[in-house]
Each structure stands twice: as structure tokens, then as C-alpha cells.
Write a protein that binds this DNA or RNA. Structure first.
Lengths: 154, 154
DNA sequence: TTAATCATGGATATTACATATCCACAATAG
DNA sequence: CTATTGTGGATATGTAATATCCATGATTAA
């Protein structure tokens, strides 16, 4: 079980955008240079955030990306789901009803107990990520970092 | 982010073994038939559980697998880690110190805040799975299922 | 002792997905 | 108009999951 490496990219990209003035935009090329990651591939990931309604993208000179809403309304879970999808890592294929030992349907009135445990764990994971916003991340950064990012990208 | 499909196999296989008498063993072939999954591949997964100390495997006729310890000492997390490994799905590659916008080492005295959030979420997931044992899973099953499994495999 | 059963490990093929690049196109600011 | 920038599609490449097969060794039953 692993998240794509691009998860880290979009988390940091969103954190950087959260440090910029409201009207400022940042291009994919700028972010690519800023983090030292491949530009075209980063663009693909940022496009996912746009489709998810987290970023807005504008074309043309002086265009680029910016956050679509306030930093305290964007959770880490929002970002992770946008880049990786919201699927549960465990998929119950009703193994209890397969093969020679298949349980009869009348014995399966309750949902699979194992799937329920896995689902609860995933929900705990989601809740943990949903509880943290970009605003809180930025608030915890040293001022020296924020100053530097504004100087480079603002 | 997804768990291998074999996660479901080993969870159900362990749940079935938890329903058998202490001295009974089950062969990979039996379990393969019982669940309708490919035998050789299932064997590979069960071997992981043996290496993790969750099962013991014995060769020869009347051999097979059985649980290595009491069902209330085997958590769902134990099984998931055995089959999938215990790695954190999010890997922090210190992106903040990469590329043109790299933060200076003296500004990185604290661990990356984003990585910390992801780590906490994974820990919440692990705790949730560690809190449930095979004994609790079996206790919640209908008697009709347990009877059937004993009749087929005991 | 022999034969059948069974786990173990290694080698190998197939498939799916993440990673990565490139190009054509549309939109926009100057 | 022209340069810039995002969007979408097509296309590689590499790695991991899925899946099978066989050789080997261990064990039990006859």
C-alpha cells in the first residue's frame, strides 16, 4: 500500500500557494523549478486539483494556478483525494461467498466483519487527514521560509 | 493507494483457521479450494505469514498450516503487515530541501509538517487495525458458518 | 523402505499502474 | 499578432502485483 510520489508534490505545491497573496498565480513551470520535479508530469497533477475544485487555472501570460478557496477550507484529505482518488485501499470481493466453502446468502445478512474493520481503519485515516487544513500547515512554518517563498514566487 | 488483493485472502484464511481445533491443520490446497483462489499464489502469501510468526507450517501428509498463537493475540494489523509490509504509504523525500526553492538546513530544524500529518494518519490507521483480534472476528460470526467450516475443513 | 503428501524457495511470465515525456490545441495578456 | 500558459490526448518506461511452474526437502502412512 503506497501513495504516489506525486502526493508529496501537490501537498507542497498547495502549501506554497497558500503562502502567496490572494490574487497571485504560479505557473507549473515555476513550481517545477521550485521543487526540482518534472514539469509536464507536475502539470498533470495540478490539473487534477483543478478538476477537484481546489485550484483554479488560468491560461495566457501572467496566468497559472491559485487556490480556489480559503486556506482554512482546504484539508490535507482534500489534496490527497484529488491526487490519488478516494478509493478504499481494501476492496471486499465477498470472498466468504466464493469457492467451495461459500457461505449461503442467508448467512450473510450482516456485512463482512473483516471488510468492516478495514473500512473503519480507512475512515480513521481520512478523519485524521481531514482535521488538518492548509492554514494550519502554513501557520507552523518559520517566517524565514515564508519570506523566501514570497520573494521567489510572489 | 491500495492493498494487494491477497490481503483479503489471508484475512479470511486466518479467520477460517481461527475456527478450527487447536491441533488441526489446513493445507494450502484446501484453502485454495475453499475460497476459489489460485493455489500456488495463495501458498506464497501463507509463507509470508509463517515468516512473520503468525502461522506454523508443517510438511508431509496431514501437514499444513495452523495459527502459531492464540486468536486473541493475533490482530488484523499483524495480518496486514505480514502480507503487505509495514511501510508508511507516504514517503517524505524532503521536497522542501530540493530544487530552486530549497529551504536552508537551518530552517528545517523541525520535521516536515506535511510528513508529520501523513504519519499521524497512518498511525491512526494502524491503531484501528491493531485494536481488533481474530478472536473478536470469529465471535461475531453466525454459528451456521462456523459449523460449516468445521465440517468442511476440520 | 517406499510412496504419497505437503511446504518452501526460485525462476519466470503477465498485467496493471505509476512515472514521465511530447505534442496539438485553446485561451489570454500585452 | 505573438508570446505565454493551461488542457487534453497519445505514447513510452519502469516497477510492483498477480499468477504459474518446478525442484527440493521434510514428513507421514503403508
Amino acid at each position: 500500500m503506497k501513495l504516489p510520489e506525486t502526493s508529496e508534490w501537490v501537498l507542497h505545491a498547495a502549501a506554497v500557494m497558500a503562502q502567496l497573496p490572494d490574487d497571485a498565480t504560479v505557473s507549473a513551470a515555476q513550481l517545477s523549478e521550485h521543487f526540482g520535479v518534472p514539469g509536464p508530469y507536475l502539470s498533470k497533477q495540478l490539473a487534477k486539483l483543478v478538476r477537484a475544485g481546489i485550484l483554479t487555472g488560468s491560461t495566457g501570460p501572467r496566468g497559472g494556478f491559485r487556490l480556489a478557496r480559503r486556506t482554512d477550507r482546504i484539508s490535507i484529505l482534500d489534496l490527497v483525494i484529488a491526487v490519488d482518488g478516494g478509493a478504499d485501499p481494501y476492496v471486499c470481493r465477498e470472498l466468504r461467498q466464493q469457492g467451495r466453502g461459500a457461505a449461503r446468502p442467508e448467512d450473510c445478512t450482516r456485512p463482512c466483519a473483516l471488510a468492516a474493520v478495514m473500512r473503519d481503519a480507512h475512515e480513521a485515516w481520512r478523519s485524521s487527514l481531514a482535521a488538518v487544513t492548509l492554514a494550519e500547515i502554513v501557520a507552523g512554518l518559520p517566517d524565514t521560509i515564508i519570506d523566501k517563498n514570497r520573494r521567489l514566487l510572489g
